[in-house]
Design a protein around this nucleic acid. Sequence first.
DNA 1: TATGAATGAGTGTTCATTCAT
DNA 2: TATGAATGAACACTCATTCAT
Lengths: 200, 200, 200, 200
Amino acid sequence: MTAPQLEPRKTPIQGRSKATCDAVLEAAARILEEEGRAALTTNRIAERAGVSVGSLYQYFPGKEAIVAELIRGMRRDMVELLRAAVEDASSQAFRPAVATLLAATLRHHTDRPALARALEREEEDLPIDAETQALKSELRVLIVRFLDRWGIADAERCAFDLVAMCHGMAAAAIRAGEEDVDDLAARLQRAVLGYLGRSV
Amino acid sequence: MTAPQLEPRKTPIQGRSKATCDAVLEAAARILEEEGRAALTTNRIAERAGVSVGSLYQYFPGKEAIVAELIRGMRRDMVELLRAAVEDASSQAFRPAVATLLAATLRHHTDRPALARALEREEEDLPIDAETQALKSELRVLIVRFLDRWGIADAERCAFDLVAMCHGMAAAAIRAGEEDVDDLAARLQRAVLGYLGRSV
Amino acid sequence: MTAPQLEPRKTPIQGRSKATCDAVLEAAARILEEEGRAALTTNRIAERAGVSVGSLYQYFPGKEAIVAELIRGMRRDMVELLRAAVEDASSQAFRPAVATLLAATLRHHTDRPALARALEREEEDLPIDAETQALKSELRVLIVRFLDRWGIADAERCAFDLVAMCHGMAAAAIRAGEEDVDDLAARLQRAVLGYLGRSV
Amino acid sequence: MTAPQLEPRKTPIQGRSKATCDAVLEAAARILEEEGRAALTTNRIAERAGVSVGSLYQYFPGKEAIVAELIRGMRRDMVELLRAAVEDASSQAFRPAVATLLAATLRHHTDRPALARALEREEEDLPIDAETQALKSELRVLIVRFLDRWGIADAERCAFDLVAMCHGMAAAAIRAGEEDVDDLAARLQRAVLGYLGRSV
DNA sequence: TATGAATGAGTGTTCATTCAT
DNA sequence: TATGAATGAACACTCATTCAT
């Protein structure tokens, strides 16, 4: 089994190219959301992108690279979101600050839930690529720093557990069709504070 | 898209047949664990089972049925485990009782972690079959009853959140290679009691 | 048993595509003629067409569609032939007119006899597709109108019997290796006029 | 392509064997009638015969031999029928004699129409076996002798044409669902006498 | 540079036939 | 002798990828 090429082929910022590139990515995303992973074929992607397969291969070395790029995009968004939240939270008291971070985290699950789920699953099957690794690391660091700032012991481990816990609950709830995001956020808050022993 | 057949074809308890049947299931399980879902082809399954493709199809109507049976097996084990734990917990105080249930839950993740993860993923792609549905329902009921017994309000929702939370944390920890199950159990306990507001 | 797709997939009149499409059809025809229906596999068709299986499936949704298209082609030819014959016969006396129609009918059996036989057999196993149905209906109408024009009673039934009778005789004769088409035509004429009570 | 074995494996007239043999043949016949040629698998035959595949292969060298035996049975029945008819006809005038023969011929199509059709089709795909050849020859001889007896010229050719004509008409009519056998017989009579120039 | 026709290895599945029990 | 589990070659069909135009 040869490791697939995951990097995009060129990184062209010129108009035409960028547009094609984006069209391909968006098409792939929509297929994952609406038609499922089994429908994610290169021909289908090209078709939905309004582009020929040949062009698709001009910008991406293969199917896996497209998925990898979608994953990178998702991770970038998450970092962006969390970074902004940490910023906002820097001037807040502990509980509101936690709420701010949770709200940001929830955005990941609520924005395009089907896409997020699909990409997380794909991520498991793909070899680890450097940028994705770095982005995930950055997410962890942001949270660890936050916990550190509030004097929480064993911040690394806590961050790990909290992320897993929140991810588990949020994913399950969204998947089950829950619509009341505020209620879900409240329960997450309860779980987090409980875990941290700060519930009182 | 025609719904695939998920029920086994024959269920023969005679020697040779049962052995073949089991060999196929075990081979599929090992492939999922060691080679990944992409390697799970009928030919590979037959090969690892030391059996011909023809034999495979004598017992299962198709690949999906093999996976479905593995899932059913996993769910049956979980029900068994949890039922026993609930039984044991019936004479215990609240905290030890929670610990008992958590220990049972953790077994699901620690026994054959890669298999559990793989099957959970497959489960998402497969149509819901009746028995699996029933088993999952039974799991929920066991937990809801436990929570009810201890006077916990909104037991349905709590059960849902707690299961998701524990699943998220356990899966992430095991996946990250954690070996100290007792420590993990302790953290889960903390999270659960915290969520329930019983941490003191 | 799911009804197979019988319509072609694309109908491209551009050069390369059309050529591939035709090559596939002709290859299938030749296999039916020379190797028999058992040899009509998609791989064999592609091989004889000098094309890859993939290309075959680009133009036809499946094996049955190829056969269906051959059948449609055969029926179209028959309609064409008979229509022209009816035209020609319109200015003739009864007996010459009958001869004209019979000659056209015989063409169907003499052109590519093995292919005609094979396709007629395949037609029985395939679900009825709309165009084929329409073509067969048109054939019947042409004959019925002809009989009507000459004041023959119960033209529908007569047409039915005459077609069956001629088809039976011609198929058997050609299959037995008869070469003298004129003699065969004469016997058909005798049979037809006899049946119609116009033999004198 | 190796020529398949068409002869039955043993010709055992002892009770048990004969019964099994017959069960297999009747099962195959019914499958052809009711489920179609695609369903005619050795396993299915054995199943419907209430016998194991192993036993099936004890009496027949392969699937083709079973079909070949059914064909021989059909041909034997036809010979039987026609021989009796010729016998009966020997004391009749020409026209009633023709009617007698036609009635016998029609029986072939009316008895088990679907089976007759199916077997005729199979016959085309199978290599010619000696007995079947002999039986078909015998049929021809019976008719030729009949025609000779009534002073019909070129009896061989006439027999050939008449058989083909009658077969074509009868098969088409029965297949189209005609139920009025007497009417069909009358039309056949008309066609035959017309062809022979004896219609007046 | 863009196109989309062409490729063919690989997948799931069937079924005639064998042979250990 | 009867059984039916086991076999595996063969089939229909898909899809990531290439390359002539």
